[in-house]
Structures are given as C-alpha cells and as structure tokens.
Amino acid sequence: MTEPEPAPAPAPAQPKVRNLDARSLRGLAHPLRIRLLDALRFGGPATASQLGEKLGESSGATSYHLRQLAAHGFIEDAPEHGKGRERWWKSAYQGLRFDDALLTDENPEVRGAADLYLHELLTTHNRDLSTWLGNRHAWPEAWNSTWDLSSATLNLTPELTRELVEKLHAVIDTFRDRAAPEGTDEAAQVRIHTHTFPLTTE
C-alpha cells in the first residue's frame, strides 16, 4: 500500500503592502504623518492623544494628520479598541513600496513629495539607530552582543547591485517567516536598515 504524499506546507502569509502612487504619496509626504504611520505600524493601535504624547505633539495636530492619513487609505478605525468616545486608529498596511518613477514624474509637486518622503525615511533610520545607541546600556547583554553597524564597499554594475538588493531582501523575508510569536520571552522588534547606493570616488 502506497503511503499518501504529505500535503504541502501552506505558503507563509505575505505582509500587506501599499504601493505608493502620485496621489497617495502627496497624502503621506509630511514629517508628522510619516511618524504617525510608523507609530501605528510598529506600536499598534492608538488614539490621537496617545500618539500626541508619544511624539511630543498636540492632540489637535495628531487628530488632523490622522484624518488625512485615513482619507488616503493608510490607516483605518480600530473600533475593537474603542473605549468611550475616543477614536482608535490602526495601520491599514504592514509595509510601503516606493516606485522610483515618482522621482522623475512630470509633476514637480510629485517629485518634491517623493524627495521629502525619502529624506524623512532617512531621518527615521538615523533616529532609530541613535535611539538604540543612546539606550543600549538599558538592554540585556544578549542584545548588546548581537546588534550590527557595518558597511561594505563593492565594485558592482547596476545589474549586480539589483541582484544583491533582491538577495538581501529574500534573506530578510526568510526571517520574517520565522518571527517569534507575540509575547515570547526575550523577543523584541528588530529593525533592519539596508542602504545600497553608488559612491562618488573623486
């Protein structure tokens, strides 16, 4: 009697990613909106007042910009967290995908929004790393011996660079599938930044 073939393992769920287009980018390209969206993506649902306290902004400012994010579909109501009259918000997506064509769009407003968004992204990366460096003494020794701050310079063609970026992302995705369940002891959110760009050698 032939043993039946085992059923294939289900494919890991892919994160829900928003593709940025000209319209949605203009709705996001504001420093506070980018910070609010990141706070909801990585910190979970929250109210305008909670986010204001966390980011050092007034609840009036956070309320306005949260409504703008909602109008462009980046965030949505989280009624399951609602208590009383406070409105709770959550991110509608787990990731964002930037199209390089936005940097060369015929509309100067779109190009400006694309440039602002990328510079705010870099500011966020630098802030994340600076925060870790300033607070790492408060983390257990296990975390202080596993972090990384390194760089490498390679002589590559655009095609090889694209291949390198794709392989780096593929490696990160394999660890996304192995992420520790919520509430696991010693687990923490780990931020991975990748910066790949050509250098002027003059």
Rank of each mutant, 00 (worst) to 15 (best):
G73T: 02
P198T: 05
T146E: 08
G73K: 02
F74E: 04
G56C: 05
T131L: 07
D21A: 10
E141R: 10
P4A: 11
D77M: 04
A70M: 05
L32A: 12
T123L: 08
L28S: 10
A46K: 00
E106S: 12
A29F: 02
P31R: 04
R136E: 11
E159K: 09
A138G: 09
V110S: 06
M1N: 11
E53H: 04
S24K: 06
T47H: 01
L156C: 14
L37W: 06
G84W: 00
L66G: 08
A46S: 13
A170E: 12
A187Y: 02
E80K: 05
R18T: 04
W132Y: 13
E202Q: 14
A13W: 00
E186G: 08
A78I: 02
G183M: 07
D100M: 09
N144D: 08
A39Y: 00
G84P: 12
L133H: 08
A101G: 13
R136G: 08
N135K: 05
E163N: 12
R97D: 12
A170H: 06
T146C: 11
D105I: 04
A48I: 00
E5H: 04
D185M: 03
A170C: 07
L116M: 12
E166D: 14
N144S: 11
D185K: 07
A22L: 05
W143E: 15
